[in-house]
Structure formats: C-alpha cells, structure tokens
C-alpha cells in the first residue's frame, strides 16, 4: 500500500505542501521582524480565499459543474482572481497591523498582549465571515478540472499540481529575492537583526513592519487561490484554522524567521503527512505531522534550518 502509493503521495504532498509553505512564509516574516506569532494570519488567508471566490462570482461563474472554457480564458480568470485575492489579503494584513498591533507597540505592551490580541483578531475576523456568509461552505466554483498530464513511476501528475508547484516556487523565489536582494528587503533584515540600531541607521521601522505584513498577506492571497483550486469547497469561515496551524507548524519545523525554512518545512510537512496517512490510515494524518514537528524540535530546537531572517547571510 505504502510503496504502491509512494510517488502519488509525494506529488500530492508537494502540491499541498506548497500551499502550506506560502502561508508559512507569512508567519515567518512577521516573526522574524517582530518576534510576534501572528495567529490572525490564517484569517488573512481566509480573506484571500473569499476574495478569490467573489472574483469568480463577479466574473460570472456560478456554483455547479466545472465549465468548459478555453485554456486562455481560464488562465486570465485565475490570474485576475489571484491578483484580487492577493491584494485583498495584503491590504487586510496591513490593516490588521494598524488596528491590532501598532497601538500595542506604541504603548510598549508586553509580548503576551500581542499574542492574545492576535488570537482575538483571528476570532473576530472568523466570526465576521460566519455572520455574513453563514457556516456552510460557499457553493463550489471550479474553473480547472484536474487532468493527469504525465506520470512519474505510474503516479499521475495533474495540470493543477503542476501549476501550483511551479507558481508557488516562483512566488517563493520572488519573496526570497525581495528580502535578500532589494533595498527594502535589506531594511527588513536590518530591523529583524537589531531594531534599535537599524532605526539609528535611518531605517524606517514602521514602514518595514508594514512591508512585512503586506508581503505575508500577498503570499497568503496567492496560497488562497491555489487552495481554492485544489479544494473548491474551501470558502468557509473556519477554513483557515487547520491550515493555519499546519502552516505555522511548517514555519517552526523549517526554522521560524527563516524564509527558506518555511518553504522546506511546508514541503516536508505536506509530504510526510501524506506518507503518514498512507502508512497508518487517514485519522493519523495530523498525529504524524505533529510528531514529526516535536521530534525535529527535540534535536534541533531552532528548526531544520535555524532562525535566521536577521542574519546578514541567509
């Protein structure tokens, strides 16, 4: 069973793990700069999911069977929906920072206050969606039917998985390049390393924080598009909860504060939990994922690649 499904599990895990990784980047970026675990990030992701969903609606798609439209149209629609989801999630992340975290920072609140605020903000956003959209998932809209394109050792690789894996890696390298190679990115790393000195050197700390939240939100919005393409039933108020926890676990697994760690952690988590359910059965999926996390942290408390957004060399 396990061996027969090995390659299928690996491919599914890579594609689902890419989504974890994109969300994990948001946790890691904010943690790197503020040492804050932004638990509301999973709701930023949900905002992205609804943004994508409502764009589908606005484009004239209705819940039901997958429509038959030319590939060019599909790509244009997906790109547009993804852009809307990214922008919405990005703006929401910046607003969240303004409303929930900045006032606390102004008053030099203890770190625990940030944590509780983050959890509170998460519930508030979640319940707002529940009140306005109810607790049933939105009707299924799917633009792209998954179709096997080629096979690796007999395991089908679908068009959907190819798009998700390639696009996620592109997003990741763009984000990594931004943080490591641009002037603004240098500011982000400087603040992560030593906020006081960075401020003295003329780095605008508030602007860096804003950029960090924006970047995390944009990536979450992209993840939202890929998630909704994989799970068309995903537009629901609590849809971000489990995924958020998994993504956070992925960030810690790879080394929180470390961009490459988030990518590695997400992919490993996605693959390992697929192996786990294949070996032990479906209800062991989360157990396997978190036992892996605990096991890695026992031997490498800072995660696989260590915490290193602040270091000059990443």
């Amino acid at each position: 069973m396990f061996l027969d499904r090995f390659w299928a599990n690996t491919i599914n895990g890579l594609s689902y793990g890419s989504i974890y990784a994109l969300v994990a980047l948001g946790y890691t970026l904010v943690y790197g700069v503020l040492q804050l675990i932004n638990f509301a990030h999973s709701e930023i992701f949900v905002i992205g999911v609804f943004g994508v969903y409502f764009t589908f609606l606005a484009l004239g798609f209705v819940p039901g069977a997958t429509p038959n439209i030319p590939i060019g149209g599909i790509i244009a629609d997906l790109v547009l929906a993804g852009a809307v989801g990214m922008i919405l999630a990005g703006v929401a992340a910046v607003l969240l920072e303004r409303v929930a975290y900045r006032p606390l920072r102004r008053r030099n609140a203890p770190r625990l206050a940030f944590l509780i605020t983050a959890i509170g903000a998460s519930f508030v956003i979640q319940q707002i969606f529940r009140i306005f959209r109810g607790s049933n998932p939105e009707g299924t809209i799917r633009l792209l039917q998954p179709d096997p394109v080629f096979r690796i050792f007999g395991a089908p690789v679908t068009n959907l998985q190819i798009i998700i894996i390639l696009a996620s890696f592109a997003m990741f390298f763009a984000a990594d390049g931004f943080v490591n190679r641009t002037r603004l990115g240098r500011g982000v790393r400087a603040v992560a390393q030593d906020p006081a000195t960075a401020t003295l050197m003329g780095v605008n700390r508030e602007r860096v924080i804003m950029i960090t939240f924006l970047l995390g939100g944009l990536l979450a919005g992209a993840a939202a598009l890929f998630y909704l393409m994989t799970i068309p039933q995903g537009a629901v108020f609590n849809g971000g909860f489990l995924l958020g926890i998994k993504a956070f676990a992925a960030a810690v697994l790879g080394g929180i504060g470390n961009l490459r760690g988030a990518l590695l952690g997400g992919l490993i988590l996605g693959i390992v939990e697929n192996y786990g359910q294949s070996l032990f059965g479906g209800d062991w999926r989360d157990v396997v994922a978190f036992v892996l996390l605990v096991g890695v942290l026992m031997f490498r408390p800072t995660g696989i690649l260590g915490e290193s957004l602040g270091k000059a060399r990443v």
Binding site: M1, R5, N9, Y16, G234, N238, L242, G282, D283, R285
Partner: peptide
C-alpha cells in the same frame, strides 16, 4: 475501511485507498 476527520478537506490518501 477508511477514516477521515471532521473538517478535513483533502482526501488524497482515502482516494488512493479506494482506488486500490
């Protein structure tokens, strides 16, 4: 026999089990 969890949305393992 397959098991899934409440709120689970991704069922590739169960699907694989059924396929076999």
């Amino acid at each position: 026999q397959g098991n899934v969890k409440t709120n689970q949305k991704e069922f590739s393992a169960t699907v694989g089990q059924v396929q076999q």
